[in-house]
């Protein structure tokens, strides 16, 4: 029977990754989490056999974590290691995989066991396609694209907690001279029912206020395209949706001033209703929207706010 090791820095990640182990019918599931995550009640109802607690987990760089993970996998013989699709985990898993002569698949959207072998799906060609891959050797390391899956509830079981000491595995060839934390804002995009998302159609940072007002009125979360976060730094990186960012599935996604490139759309494809506000009628987003508003956002958004206020419209 296959043993699975889940790596997660947050409880939500752990919960979602637990469902992946269920999908392949794994019996023996262990987790490596930050020691700050200890929440005995939740952990013991996840059907985990063992939880390793690591002090300073999320701050430990991948080139150091790799030694801890290799050690664990070798000792415990895990067939599968899963973690969330985030930069640190992708790097950690690629390193571990190279070291163990193992496969590593990033950003997996599904995993199943087909006639005894593992088959995963992941985005391909910018996200407009999906590739289906058979895993030929274990252990395999997979980062999973988080999409808000929730595990079944279970009886509380017995759980062994193992505290891992911080190993002194520092790579002296790399010096971290500064670390700047980005402050968390708003709720988790994956759970939002309505998301208002901004793109480069906004000319100045101050103009995002309009989108914030709209989001507030609708009780929506604010998201953005990659350039708004990464090129312009107007929003935190964790708010960008798409291939390299968050994958979301709200009831309503309102894309404002976003062109709708495939790398963006893959992250919002599962939205129930997509509204596009873009004054270029040839922008690709119009082909992937339920409702297209081919107007200047600077005229339309204030009008929409006005109508919503007048009608006292709220999210149902």
């Amino acid at each position: 029977m296959m043993t699975v090791l889940i790596l997660a820095g947050e409880l939500d990640e752990l919960l979602e990754l637990r469902t992946v182990a269920d999908q392949i019918g794994a019996q023996d599931v262990e987790a490596l989490v930050p020691d700050a995550l200890v929440d005995g009640d939740t952990l013991s109802s996840l059907g985990l056999k063992r939880v390793y607690l690591l002090e300073g987990f999320e701050e430990t760089p991948p080139e150091e974590l790799v030694k801890i993970v290799i050690d664990l996998v070798k000792k415990r013989g895990h067939g599968l290691v899963v973690g969330p699709s985030k930069k640190i985990y992708r790097e950690l898993f690629a390193r571990t995989a190279q070291n163990l002569s193992s496969p590593c698949l990033t950003d997996c959207t599904s995993l199943e066991s087909v006639e005894g072998s593992l088959v995963a799906e992941r985005p391909f060609l910018g996200g407009g396609y999906v590739e289906r891959l058979a895993i030929k050797r274990l252990p395999a390391l997979l980062t999973i694209q988080l999409m808000g899956r929730r595990p079944q509830t279970r009886e509380k079981g017995s759980l062994e907690m193992v505290r891992l000491g911080r190993l002194s595995t520092e790579d002296l060839r790399l010096r971290r001279v500064a670390v700047e934390k980005v402050e968390r804002r708003g709720a988790d995009l994956a759970k939002a029912r309505v998301v208002v998302s901004v793109g480069r159609g906004f000319k100045r940072r101050e103009d995002l206020k309009m989108a914030e007002d709209l989001a507030q009125l609708l009780g929506a979360e604010l998201a953005c395209s990659r350039p708004i976060a990464s090129d312009l730094g107007w929003m935190p990186e964790e708010k960008h949706v798409g291939l390299s960012g968050k994958w979301i599935s709200p009831q309503l996604y309102i894309a404002i001033g976003i062109s709708g490139q495939v790398q963006h759309m893959v992250g919002v494809r599962n939205s129930r209703i997509i509204v596009a506000v873009n004054n270029d009628t040839s922008a690709p987003i119009h082909r992937e929207a339920d409702y297209s508003v081919p107007l200047d956002l600077y005229q339309f958004i204030p009008a929409l706010i006005k109508v919503l206020r007048e009608r006292g419209a709220r999210v149902a």
Partner: peptide, 8 residues
Amino acid sequence: LEDRTEIL
């Protein structure tokens, strides 16, 4: 990174 920037 998603939650921080670092200088190395």
